[in-house]
Design a protein around this nucleic acid. Structure first.
Length: 733
DNA sequence: CCGATAGAGTTTTTT
DNA sequence: ACTCTATCGG
């Protein structure tokens, strides 16, 4: 490999970044500025110049797909396999470290990874066990609190010390129990992977030394999306050698709800005052019109590193801005436009439609189906989230990690075998009080008090088939055949076949697909390679397979090969590009999302808009609907502020005739909807309006209902109140 | 123990 | 509009 060819074709700043020597390096990479190129070329350059061997490089991405692509591209550049290089996500890298050192934390290397749904179920159980009302303390809210704490590396005790409210006090209690349960079940949730990895590196100097010595160069993509735990983890791995390169764009930080802390990228140079900074501002993707729009929108944010995208590609066409009557008209417009483009010879794969929330895809999908256009949706319900797949995986987990009561309870009565919820509670309760593993309790059911004889008999039969499967798993059977055996021996498949419904048939097909996935895994080379830090023994193939499944996300399943029109959320769009892009649902309350507005997340919503705009290469459409069905009722919105932030001269706008202010809801619109006569004066409040009330304080309009009622969420006590617009003393801010 | 029914809550975004 | 939950009757 020629070093010269690695630098050829790069612009000045890119070349500077690729050829940079030792020390901290910050790359501020604007959208479409070729950051992946810089990353991959730099890795190849480091290997090519002998600055680092393949196994001395740690390259971190956020999705498995990005990691896979990075690996492929680097292999092309260096002209050979780089199996020993750590190119993976934060979570995968942490999981790998933890498997090697699990015993130090009182775990076994076969620990289970809990995804968000698994974790939520466990939290729900903790709430139940503690006798907490799940209405007042929803599992989701408690989970959010715990997750936030973990992302900040605050453990249950630490959290208990900083509680400032009754709610937090309760969360602290749940947090403690949740942690105890996870540990007892030899399980970790997503956040634990990071937290525990930091623990290992902090508590055991010799382990940390091994990794810091071994990783000569560390590179991180999408640095603006890192949270505090990830920051600490990186710091622990890099503070000795200080060869850390982070690449990111503060304008594309859109994951704060998941604990991402934009300060990590904004203060990198405070952490490393000698850091070299390279800005990539030349864009190779979009027309100048699109970039001007993106620059204009993002300039409304205060907190940012100034950047100005430019291109040599020329001005291009104006941005098409359209306003439609409702979401159906919006969908029809998009579909008609797509049909026109296809007639002109555009390939469907060149077109993408972005929306704020997954729920928005439905109307569009209906319209596309009726028009006979095939499409793919990224996100939504994932393959691995389907109940039958989760069941099959839970069976496999039970074989690998007999301590995992979560997996066990999931499958013990699926298919139905007469072990109902009361019996399961008794088993769990017994395991809880005796401290026994759930598997051992089930293996000797007669010792459990109050367990009915039919339940004992059913458990015996169940455990007999599980024992057989266990032996098969231990003997190192191929995973595909093991999955088939599980489905057969447990009666799972039989129960589905007996249903004789279309749905059941679909489930069977999904399970067959899982067998295929397993077969592919069987055929693949063990990813072990030669671990740079010794001490990573062989993990069982089955455990490895399960880990791979559990760390998979829907961002990973999108394929560019399908040749289809693509639908996805704006979040999922990050990192992608399409010649033609539609951004739909640009209304206040939808985008920017009302909940983000309440929580002061407007700037992040704007960054999301920036992400959306900068995905477009050639043509950009931005649409809004006057009304939209939400929660089964119709709500009337106002065009998104983001539309007005795009300079008019960059756009080609078609708007509906102005709607008289008076029909916001209480006037004509109400008559139209309720059939009632009502000449009451007009309410002049729209969704998303900022209002102020003399006694409740500042608030935001979250809904407008018939009868001149406005729903307002007040910032002070986060309460939502319904007020009569004409009589309540509210005014716009 | 299981299925049907009614009722409530739900929609941000995800490794 | 839809899905998950709690409750009841078999």
């Amino acid at each position: 490999m020629e070093l010269e060819t690695l630098l050829a074709g790069l612009n000045g700043p890119q070349r500077e970044a690729v050829a940079f020597g030792e020390g901290p390096l910050l790359i501020l990479a604007g959208a479409g500025s070729g950051k992946t190129r810089v990353l991959t070329h730099r890795i190849a350059y480091l290997v090519g110049t002998g600055a680092a061997r393949a196994n001395e490089i740690l390259a971190i991405t956020f999705t498995n797909k990005a990691a896979g692509e990075m690996r492929d591209r680097v292999e092309l550049l260096v002209g050979g396999r780089i199996r020993t290089m750590w190119v993976m996500t934060f979570h995968a890298a942490c999981a790998r470290m933890l498997r090697a050192h699990a015993d130090r934390l009182g775990y076994t290397r076969r620990f289970t990874i809990y995804d968000q749904a698994d974790s939520r179920r466990l939290i729900k159980r903790c709430l139940d066990d503690l006798g907490i009302d799940p209405k007042r303390f929803t599992p989701a809210a408690v989970q959010g609190q715990i997750s936030d704490a973990k992302n900040k590396l605050i453990d249950a005790d630490g959290y208990g010390q900083i509680v400032g409210s009754f709610f937090e006090g309760t969360v602290a209690e749940v947090y403690r129990r949740y942690e105890r349960e996870l540990h007892r079940m030899n399980a970790m949730d997503f956040d634990d992977l990071l937290f525990r990895a930091v623990d290992v590196l902090t508590m055991f100097q010799e382990i940390r030394d091994r990794y810091t010595e071994s990783f000569r160069h560390v590179l991180v993509d999408e640095y603006q999306d890192t949270n505090h735990a990830q920051y600490r983890w990186l710091k622990l791995l890099t503070s000795e050698r200080r060869n850390v390169m982070v690449v990111g764009d503060d304008a594309q930080s859109v994951y704060s709800f998941r604990g991402a802390d934009i300060r990590n990228i904004l203060t990198f140079t405070d952490d490393y005052p000698d850091a070299h900074v390279v800005k990539l501002e030349q864009n190779y993707r979009s027309t100048q019109t699109i970039l001007d729009a993106a620059n204009a929108v993002i300039s409304n944010n205060r907190q940012q590193k100034p950047k100005h995208l430019w291109t040599e590609l020329g001005k291009g066409d104006p941005i098409k801005v359209r306003e439609l009557d409702d979401e159906h008209a919006e969908a029809r417009f998009v579909v008609a436009e797509v049909e026109r483009l296809l007639d002109e010879g555009t390939s469907p794969a060149e077109v993408a439609v972005f929306y704020r929330t997954n729920a928005q895809s439905r109307v569009l999908e209906d319209t596309l189906v009726r028009a006979g256009i095939s499409y793919q949706v990224i996100g939504g319900t994932k393959f691995y989230d389907r109940a039958e797949i989760k069941d099959a995986i839970a069976y496999l987990i039970t074989l690998v990690n007999p301590l995992d009561a979560g997996a066990f309870t999931r499958i013990v009565n699926s298919p139905r075998r007469g072990i109902g919820s009361t019996s399961v509670s008794r088993l769990l309760g017994f395991a809880n009080t005796t401290g026994m593993a759930i598997w051992d309790v089930a293996a000797a059911p007669e010792q459990v008090p109050d367990l009915g004889p039919p339940a004992v008999r059913a458990l015996r039969r169940f455990m007999a088939s599980m024992d057989g499967l266990r032996e098969r798993a231990e003997s190192g059977s191929e995973i595909a055949t093991l999955v088939q055996a599980v489905l057969r021996d447990t009666g799972y498949l039989e129960a589905l076949e007996a249903e004789r419904t279309i749905e059941a048939q679909g489930r069977i097909e999904n399970l067959e697909e899982l067998v295929n996935v397993a077969a592919e895994f069987d055929a693949s080379v063990p990813d072990d390679g030669v671990p740079p830090a010794a001490g990573e023994g062989q993990t069982s193939r089955l455990a490895e397979f399960l880990q791979q499944l559990q760390l998979l996300s829907d961002a990973d399943e999108r394929s560019d090969e399908t040749g289809l029109l693509t639908l996805m959320t704006l979040h999922n769009a990050k990192g992608l590009e399409y010649p033609i892009v539609f951004i739909i649902g640009c209304e206040e309350g939808v985008f920017p999302h009302s909940r983000a507005l309440e929580e002061g997340g407007l700037e992040e919503e704007r960054r999301l808009c920036y992400v959306g705009i900068t995905r477009a290469e050639r043509d950009l459409y931005v649409t809004s609907a006057r009304s939209r069905g939400v929660f089964g009722t119709r709500s009337y919105g106002v065009r998104s502020r983001f539309i007005s932030e795009i300079p008019v001269e960059l756009t080609d706008r078609e708007e509906l005739p102005p709607r008289p202010r008076a029909i916001s809801w209480s006037g004509a619109a109400k008559r139209e909807w309720t059939g009632e006569r009502n000449d009451a004066p007009a309410a002049t409040f729209g969704l998303g309006d900022d209002v102020v009330h003399p006694s409740f304080g500042d608030g935001v309009v979250t809904g407008v209902e018939p009868g001149g009622i406005v729903v307002i969420r007040f910032a002070a006590d986060r309460s939502e109140r319904k007020l009569l617009a004409e009589v309540a003393p509210i005014s716009k801010r």
